[in-house]
Every structure is written in structure tokens, then in C-alpha cells.
Nucleic acid binder design. Structure first.
Length: 774
DNA sequence: ACGGACAGTTTTTTT
DNA sequence: AACTGTCCGT
């Protein structure tokens, strides 16, 4: 299951001239080549067979990008142009890597395992592990995830008395990450970059952060690239060795590379210059992670002899879907430009893209669930997907699907490895593996409660800092053995025991010991709540995952930091619910694209940021549409609840940017107001309806638009911290008031309140009337 | 040391 | 709505 085995060093250590090829057929057979290439079209064939020098393959959606990449690798190996371990193929996601791995295996068999195939981060990690000491780390360093980084930054900011509310660790993390993505260590950070950053003294905090990471013997995600690049940059001999090894380098999704990845590739490809980059500038959706579309736009400047091949035959979608997607993306400026056309062998008779408007997101979700029910006949559920802009949107679909009895899986979102209990357990294991890891240690030192409070920890922290040791190490030397410190010694003794056990027992056994002997499992078992039950189950599941898949603690910890459990699509037959970002590289026969509302999609932040950000949103929409093979449904709602507050929505501008001949619109609003009976409204234009509706009603007086029959009445009790004021409802120190005139809140008797409302249930009753007042 | 009450904030996408 | 941080009583 591991994409490539990090313990397998032989392919590297043996001088490559002397290396015998394992399992590769030395004799090239023509029929093999024919079998490999026969299904390719002319464009694809050229991309596979252009083996010398730099090559840019501009591959539009659905034009067989992965096929070209894998066939190219197979071709190189079969034609004996390189040995498997002399070929490196880099992807962005584990999903893409494992798919390529699988396809390659089917083409050339087990030797596929020798190809350096993996994500940028994984290959960076492989290099960094070998040469960690060059950057002042020991090779068993830990990998910090985003959460760890935030916590560390928060710690640092607090030490310097920075107001964490005003200057959040998250924004600092973003700034530091952007430095790393551009390839700068604190020492080399240009003043101008620091000055332009949105966080004050970011250069100082960056330096501080890197130093702390080093003392913790840890790196963060971006370091995997940055530091592996530094290692090679500072050791020309070493770099030469790698440059000599990699005769062929292939890159997937080149449009999403950032500067450090660009430099990293350039350095590694220096030996042979056989760099093949595949990408699509219209699908660049990771600029917030430092991706520079410019990398792909100026490829031919960087590699002047580079050839460019365009793949424009689309084997995936109907003409209607392609037409809709193309007419939308045409609104973007500065594209390299491609014209996708339906492949002649693939002419599909298609339906128009459906556009539907709904009253609220619940109706939208239930429509999708019912439509799925209807469409499942003669189709696999896994051929259907719901693609959302943000993770929070998945919730209502989950609810609707489970009520309709439809199997579904949410990809991404709340991940297994990000659950509290799993993170705690991982923290325990991290301390076992790497006692210097103060972050992990602090996380679990008093979990379950061991009578070690904040005050004692403060003392220990101070002591540890003055003796330049980790918390764990400094426990023994601390000049006290009372109260919390006695408990600290106890827990340390346990950790030492587990470390010793690791020498003699299988990792799985030790993991089990840790879970039970620490009292962590007991802590949740003793709790009667529904939640705790699930946590106990999850912990059990974690143990079984460990016993099935991981032999060493290092392998396990590496896996949890680099590979998310939900990276891969479920093997079961179920509907996939995921973000648009997560859907890149996938295809489905029918795709649902909900939540196309201003502020949701395009996201509010992109609207605030301006044209460039908006273009990226548009590319995201393009990615979404082109995932569909046969059908696509776009929908939006008139009311949306975001963070517990109701808000009016207006249909996304993207809808009006799509050539209407590819669209079929219909209203599913089904509201109970008098609005429904108005004849002058055109129900075939639901996105206009939504905006008109709120324009008409937005600032209206309470009763406007209500017909008496649809007006309901309900009484409710005020909560402890609520009161009715003249302008609205007072809750604590916050005052809320009614919006849109949907209802009137009237104090009746004591804490009883009478509310008029329109066709909404009790739970929803209050929220639409409440809006925070500054 | 610990838990409950209260106030205030959150606000995208991922390796 | 769900979450964090702080204050305060036990």
C-alpha cells in the first residue's frame, strides 16, 4: 500500500552503472510496443515518443493525461531508455500517485515498484531522510502537520506577548508558508518580501519558528521540499549523484507547481534535461498554496529547446458539457488557449447542463438525494458525485443521503486522523518514537487527568528551557518530586518502558500497550456518552489498521502525516461527496454542483480579493463541470445558513457566464409565500428569481409578502441569557434583531415569546430573525 | 487541579 | 452552531 518503500535503498546505493536490471526484459519486442501504443491517438503518441529533452504537454480536461504519463514511463522502460529506478514521476496528490502506480503495474508488472513515483512531498521526504544531518536534523525527525505548526506558532507568539487574537497563528503560518513556497530560508529572506508580508516581524518569527522546529527535531510540510532542496543545493556532489540517477523526470499537474517545486525540479533535471511536464493552465486551482501558473506559462523560456504538444481531444464529456465549461472559462484572460473538442471516436449524444434553484440548502440536498435514487438504476452509485466548494456544505448531503438510504462517502473533510482521540493516540506514539517532541508530549501529558496542571508544566517548561533540554528529558533532573512532579516521573517511566518494549516486541503490541497502560482507552470507556463510544471504536479501528498495515512505528507515523485516509476513493459502491479541489483528476458519469451562490461559489474571499482570485474560482468551476461524462446539475439556493446564521443568497455570476444554449433551467423553489402566485415572475430564470425575491423582500416591512393563510404562529421560551428588547432579542451582551421582516417577535408573558413566521419549523424559527448587531 | 459558566470569535480550498 | 479562552468557585 505504500507508494514506494522508503527502506528500499538498494537502487540508490549501488552505482548505477553496475546495477543489474531486475525483471526488466532486456530484449525489446515490437509487439509489446504495439500493444502499449495502439490505443493512443496521434497527439498522445507524440507525447509518449518524444523522449529527448524538455517537453511540455498541454493536456485539457479528459484528454488522457494520465494515460500519456503512464504509457510514457512504460515505454521508456520497455524501450530500455532507462531503468525503472532512473525514472521519477511526481504528482500532487496521493490519489494521483496511487492511480498511476496501479496503471503502471498493469502495464509493466512488478518493476513498476522501482520507479520513483510519488507526491512532491513524499519524494522530498525520501531525500531528506537520507541527508537530514546536512540541515541539522537527525534522520528520525518528525513531520508536523498543520495543526502542530499552528500550536507551535501560537506558543512562540505568546512567549513574545503577541495578542494571538489580533495576530493569529494561522495568518503567520500562511506568511511563513509563502516564504517557504518561494524557496527562502530565514537567512536568505529578502527584506522586501518581509516588508510586503501581512504579518509584522514575520522574518523574526520565521527564524524563531525554524529554530524551534530544529530543537524539536521536526519539519513541517513545506520543509520537506525546501530542506531537501537546500541539501542538494549545498552539496553539489550529492546533487550530481541524483542528477545522474534521474534520466527521466515526469511531472503531473505542472500548472500547480510553486517556486520551490520549480527550483527543485530544475535542479534534479539538470543532469539529462529530460523533463516532461504535463498540465493544463485552465485547471490551476492552488494559488493559495503558492502555485504559480506562470511556471507553465513560461516553460518554453526556461527550457528554450522545449517542445510543446497540445492534447485537445476530449474522451470524457458530451459536447454540451464541454461547451458549457469552455464558454465559462473563456471569460478568463491570459490563458495559453486550447480548444477542447469531442474526440471523433467518442461522440456522445448529450443533455444540457441542468440549472436548478431551491428555497434552501435542505431542499437542494433532498433533491440531489432523490435524483440519485432515480438515477441509480443501471448505474453504479460511485459513478455519481456531489462536488462542493467548501467542506461545511457536505453536512446536509450526508443527512439527506442517509435518510434516503443511499450509500455515500465524504472524501476529505473530517478526516479520521484529525479526530481528537486519534490525534491523542498519535501523540503518545510520537513521544515513544521521538521523546524530544515537546508538542506531542504536552498534548497528552495530562490526558487522561494525572494531576499535572498548567502551573507545574510552566515550571517544567522553564526548567527545560534553561537546561536546553526537552521537557521529557528534563523531568529526571527537576529538583522536586512532589505532587505533579511525582506524576510526571510516573508517566515518563511508562514511556521508557514502551521504548524498551519496542526493541523486543512487534510495533502492534507496543501500540496496544500504549493505548491500555496509559489509561487513555479507559478514560473513554468510562465515559458514558454517545460520543465516547464512537471514540472507543475509532481507537480500536486504529489498532487494527496498525496491525494490518504497519510494521514499524516510523512507517506508521510517516503514513499518518503524509497520507490522509480519505485520499483514495472508496472501493464500495457509493456516492462520493467531496470538494471541487478534491475532485481534480477524477471523472463521474453524473455530477452535482450545488451551492453556486455569490459568496459561496465564487467564495466571498475571492470576491474581496479581485479579478485574479475570481479567475481561479472560475477555473475551479471549470474543473467541476469537466468532471462530468454525461450529465451535470448546477444548483443554488435562496436562503443559506452559514455558521448558524441565515442569510439571503443570490445565484452565482458564473451561471450567467455560461452560454445559455448549453443550459436548461427550472425552478424548484416551492415556497409558501404569496410570491409563488405572482404571474409577472419568470420561473424559468431561477437565478433571477432569487435576486428579485430578495430585492423585493429584503428591506420590506414585517408583513409584506405574507398571505394570511401561510402565516403561522408559535410560542417559544427565552433561554437564560436571552431577553426581548425594543429592537430585537438580547442574548447575553449581544443584541439580535429581526431581518427581512419575516416575522415579529413579541413578548407575551415573562419569558414566553410569540413569533409569527412563514412555513418554517421550530428549530429554524429563531435564527432567521436573529442577526448580530454591532 | 479541575469544572462550569460566560463571552467572544469563527467565515475555503490541501500536501 | 461549534469552538476557544477566561474567570471563578470548589
Amino acid at each position: 500500500m505504500d507508494i514506494f518503500d522508503l527502506t528500499d535503498d538498494e537502487s540508490f546505493d549501488v552505482p548505477f552503472e553496475a546495477k543489474e536490471q531486475k525483471g526488466v526484459r532486456n530484449v525489446y519486442k515490437e509487439d509489446q510496443e504495439n500493444a502499449l501504443l495502439k490505443s493512443l491517438n496521434k497527439e498522445q503518441l507524440e507525447a509518449v515518443q518524444t523522449t529527448e529533452g524538455a517537453l511540455l504537454v498541454l493536456a485539457g480536461a479528459g484528454t488522457g493525461k494520465t494515460r500519456v504519463l503512464t504509457t510514457r514511463i512504460a515505454y521508456l522502460i520497455q524501450k530500455n531508455l532507462c531503468r525503472p529506478y532512473e525514472c521519477m514521476a511526481v504528482t500532487f496528490t496521493n490519489k494521483a500517485a496511487s492511480e498511476m502506480k496501479e496503471r503502471l503495474f498493469n502495464m509493466i508488472g512488478p518493476v513498476a515498484g522501482d520507479v520513483w513515483l510519488g507526491t512532491f512531498h513524499k519524494i522530498g521526504l525520501k531525500i531528506l531522510r537520507r541527508h537530514a544531518q546536512e540541515v541539522g536534523l537527525s534522520s528520525d525527525f518528525n513531520i508536523f502537520n498543520q495543526d502542530d505548526s499552528f500550536r507551535l506558532l501560537k506558543l512562540i507568539l505568546k512567549e513574545y506577548d503577541v495578542d494571538v487574537k489580533k495576530y493569529s497563528p494561522k495568518s503567520l503560518a500562511e506568511v511563513i508558508d509563502s516564504f517557504k513556497n518561494k524557496g527562502f530560508l530565514p537567512e536568505s529572506l529578502p527584506k522586501s518580501l518581509e516588508a510586503g508580508a501581512s504579518f509584522p516581524k514575520s522574518g523574526f518569527f520565521y527564524r524563531e519558528y525554524q529554530e524551534r522546529l530544529r530543537t524539536l527535531n521536526a519539519v513541517d510540510f513545506s520543509d520537506l521540499l525546501l530542506l531537501s532542496f537546500e541539501v542538494l543545493k549545498n552539496n553539489p556532489e550529492l546533487a550530481l549523484k541524483y542528477q545522474h540517477q534521474f534520466r527521466y523526470i515526469l511531472v503531473d499537474e505542472y500548472q500547480d507547481t510553486n517556486i520551490i517545486q520549480y527550483l527543485w525540479l530544475k535542479l534534479l533535471a539538470k543532469g539529462y534535461g529530460n523533463l516532461c511536464c504535463v498540465g493544463d493552465d485552465d485547471q490551476s486551482i492552488y494559488s493559495w498554496r503558492g502555485a504559480e501558473v506562470e511556471n507553465i506559462l513560461r516553460f518554453s523560456e526556461d527550457y528554450p529547446k522545449a517542445k510543446t504538444i497540445r492534447l485537445e481531444s476530449n474522451y470524457r464529456s458530451t459536447a454540451e458539457i464541454l461547451g458549457a465549461a469552455s464558454s465559462l472559462i473563456a471569460h478568463n484572460k491570459g490563458r495559453l488557449g486550447k480548444t477542447l473538442r469531442v474526440a471523433p471516436t467518442h461522440l456522445l449524444e448529450g443533455k444540457q447542463v441542468e440549472v436548478k434553484g431551491f428555497w434552501d440548502s435542505k431542499k437542494e440536498a433532498y433533491f440531489v438525494a432523490e435524483d440519485v435514487s432515480y438515477n441509480r438504476k443501471g448505474r453504479r452509485l460511485s459513478d455519481l458525485a456531489v462536488l462542493v466548494r467548501a467542506n461545511f456544505q457536505t453536512r446536509e448531503f450526508e443527512e439527506a443521503f442517509s435518510k434516503e438510504g443511499i450509500a455515500y462517502k465524504v472524501i476529505g473533510g473530517f478526516r479520521f486522523y484529525e479526530r481528537e482521540e486519534i490525534k491523542d493516540m498519535i501523540a503518545y506514539l510520537r513521544v515513544v518514537a521521538q521523546p524530544k517532541d515537546d508538542m506531542a508530549f504536552e498534548r497528552i501529558v495530562n490526558k487522561p487527568k494525572r494531576g499535572i496542571g498548567a502551573a507545574s508544566l510552566d515550571k517544567l517548561r522553564e526548567f527545560a528551557a534553561s537546561s536546553h533540554q526537552s521537557l521529557f528529558e528534563s523531568i529526571d533532573a527537576y529538583p522536586s518530586n512532589k505532587g505533579a512532579f511525582a506524576h510526571l516521573r510516573e508517566i515518563k517511566a511508562l514511556f521508557v518502558k514502551w521504548q524498551e518494549d519496542l526493541e523486543v516486541l512487534p510495533f502492534f503490541e507496543v501500540a496496544k500497550e500504549v493505548l491500555y497502560e496509559s489509561g487513555y482507552m479507559k478514560m473513554w470507556k468510562d465515559e458514558a456518552s454517545f460520543e465516547a463510544k464512537g471514540k472507543v471504536e475509532n481507537l480500536g479501528e486504529l489498532l487494527s489498521v496498525i496491525s494490518a498495515d504497519f510494521e514499524t512505528i516510523t512507517a506508521f507515523l510517516e503514513h499518518v502525516s503524509l497520507v490522509m485516509d480519505t485520499d483514495e476513493l472508496s472501493k464500495d459502491d457509493c456516492v462520493n461527496i467531496m470538494t471541487l479541489h478534491g475532485a481534480k483528476g477524477l471523472e463521474f458519469s453524473k455530477v452535482y454542483l450545488p451551492g453556486w451562490e455569490e459568496g459561496i461559489f465564487p467564495h466571498q474571499k475571492s470576491l474581496d480579493e479581485g479579478e485574479k482570485a475570481l479567475e481561479e474560482e472560475r477555473r475551479l468551476a471549470y474543473v467541476g463541470l469537466t468532471r462530468a461524462k454525461e450529465e451535470a446539475v448546477i444548483s443554488f439556493v435562496a436562503n443559506r445558513q452559514v455558521y448558524g446564521q441565515w442569510q439571503a443568497s443570490i445565484a452565482s455570476r458564473f451561471l450567467s457566464e455560461i452560454d445559455s444554449k448549453y443550459l436548461k433551467t427550472s425552478s424548484q423553489m416551492g415556497m409558501q409565500s404569496s410570491f409563488e402566485n405572482k404571474e409577472d415572475e419568470n420561473f424559468d430564470e431561477p437565478y433571477q428569481n432569487a435576486s428579485n425575491f430578495f430585492r423585493n423582500r429584503g428591506a420590506a416591512s414585517p408583513q409584506k409578502g405574507f398571505s394570511n393563510s401561510s402565516l403561522s404562529r408559535s410560542t417559544t421560551s427565552l433561554k437564560k441569557n436571552e431577553a426581548v428588547t425594543e429592537n430585537g432579542i438580547k442574548r447575553g451582551s449581544q443584541v439580535y434583531h429581526e431581518i427581512f421582516g419575516y416575522g415579529v417577535a413579541v413578548q407575551v408573558d415573562g419569558n414566553k415569546v410569540e413569533v409569527y413566521f412563514e412555513g418554517l419549523g421550530r428549530k429554524k424559527l429563531m435564527s432567521p430573525f436573529l442577526e448580530k448587531v454591532k
